[in-house]
Deep mutational scan, measured.
Amino acid sequence: MQGVVKVNSALNMRSGPGSNYGVIGTLRNNDKVEIIKEVDGWYEIRFNGKVGYASKSYITIVN
């Protein structure tokens, strides 16, 4: 499943599904990501070869 990031500035990509996990990357508005699965309001995603987590509130699913 594919998604597009929708933010005003930047979205942190984290090592786990929560804001208490470390930041491993930064996503920008309109970045395209691969959604692997949903975990407690977060998406596990793949972006630029990295796998991490981002809040699903800021990612819109596209077909």
Score class of each variant (00 low, 15 high):
1 M>D: 11
1 M>G: 13
1 M>T: 15
1 M>R: 06
1 M>E: 12
1 M>K: 08
2 Q>S: 12
2 Q>F: 11
3 G>Q: 03
4 V>Q: 08
4 V>H: 07
4 V>P: 01
4 V>D: 03
4 V>G: 02
4 V>C: 05
5 V>C: 04
5 V>W: 00
6 K>W: 04
7 V>Q: 04
7 V>I: 14
7 V>W: 04
7 V>P: 04
8 N>K: 10
8 N>H: 14
9 S>M: 10
9 S>R: 09
9 S>H: 15
10 A>P: 15
10 A>I: 09
10 A>G: 13
10 A>M: 13
10 A>H: 13
11 L>Q: 10
11 L>F: 07
12 N>K: 11
12 N>T: 13
13 M>V: 08
13 M>P: 02
13 M>H: 02
14 R>M: 15
14 R>G: 02
14 R>A: 04
15 S>A: 12
15 S>V: 09
15 S>M: 08
15 S>Q: 09
16 G>F: 02
16 G>M: 02
16 G>A: 03
16 G>I: 01
16 G>R: 03
17 P>K: 02
17 P>M: 03
18 G>H: 05
18 G>I: 00
18 G>C: 03
18 G>M: 02
18 G>R: 02
18 G>K: 03
18 G>A: 05
19 S>R: 11
19 S>C: 07
20 N>P: 03
20 N>K: 10
20 N>V: 07
20 N>E: 14
20 N>T: 08
21 Y>C: 04
21 Y>K: 03
21 Y>H: 10
22 G>T: 14
22 G>E: 15
22 G>N: 13
22 G>V: 13
23 V>Q: 06
23 V>P: 07
24 I>M: 10
24 I>H: 03
24 I>D: 02
25 G>Y: 08
26 T>F: 11
26 T>P: 06
26 T>D: 06
27 L>V: 08
27 L>E: 00
27 L>A: 04
27 L>I: 07
27 L>Y: 01
27 L>T: 02
27 L>M: 10
28 R>D: 13
28 R>G: 12
28 R>S: 15
28 R>Q: 15
29 N>R: 06
29 N>E: 11
29 N>W: 08
29 N>V: 05
29 N>L: 08
30 N>M: 11
30 N>F: 09
30 N>D: 15
30 N>P: 03
31 D>E: 11
32 K>L: 14
33 V>A: 03
33 V>T: 03
33 V>F: 05
33 V>W: 02
33 V>P: 03
33 V>S: 00
33 V>H: 01
34 E>R: 03
34 E>K: 04
34 E>Q: 05
34 E>A: 04
34 E>G: 04
34 E>I: 04
34 E>H: 06
35 I>W: 02
35 I>K: 01
35 I>F: 04
35 I>C: 03
36 I>W: 05
36 I>T: 07
37 K>L: 12
37 K>G: 09
37 K>H: 12
37 K>Y: 09
37 K>W: 06
37 K>R: 09
38 E>I: 08
38 E>V: 07
38 E>T: 06
39 V>P: 00
39 V>H: 07
39 V>E: 08
39 V>K: 07
40 D>C: 05
40 D>F: 08
42 W>F: 08
42 W>P: 00
43 Y>Q: 01
43 Y>W: 08
43 Y>R: 01
43 Y>A: 03
43 Y>M: 06
43 Y>G: 00
46 R>T: 15
46 R>Q: 14
46 R>F: 15
46 R>K: 14
46 R>W: 15
47 F>Q: 05
47 F>T: 07
47 F>A: 09
48 N>W: 11
49 G>K: 09
49 G>Y: 06
49 G>P: 03
50 K>G: 08
50 K>V: 15
50 K>C: 05
50 K>N: 13
50 K>H: 12
50 K>I: 15
51 V>G: 07
51 V>C: 05
52 G>E: 00
52 G>V: 03
53 Y>A: 01
53 Y>D: 00
53 Y>R: 00
54 A>G: 07
54 A>R: 00
55 S>M: 13
56 K>Y: 05
57 S>V: 13
57 S>P: 12
59 I>W: 02
59 I>N: 01
59 I>F: 05
60 T>E: 15
60 T>W: 12
60 T>P: 04
61 I>M: 11
62 V>L: 13
62 V>S: 12
62 V>Y: 09
62 V>N: 09
63 N>I: 11
63 N>E: 14
63 N>W: 02
63 N>T: 15
63 N>A: 12
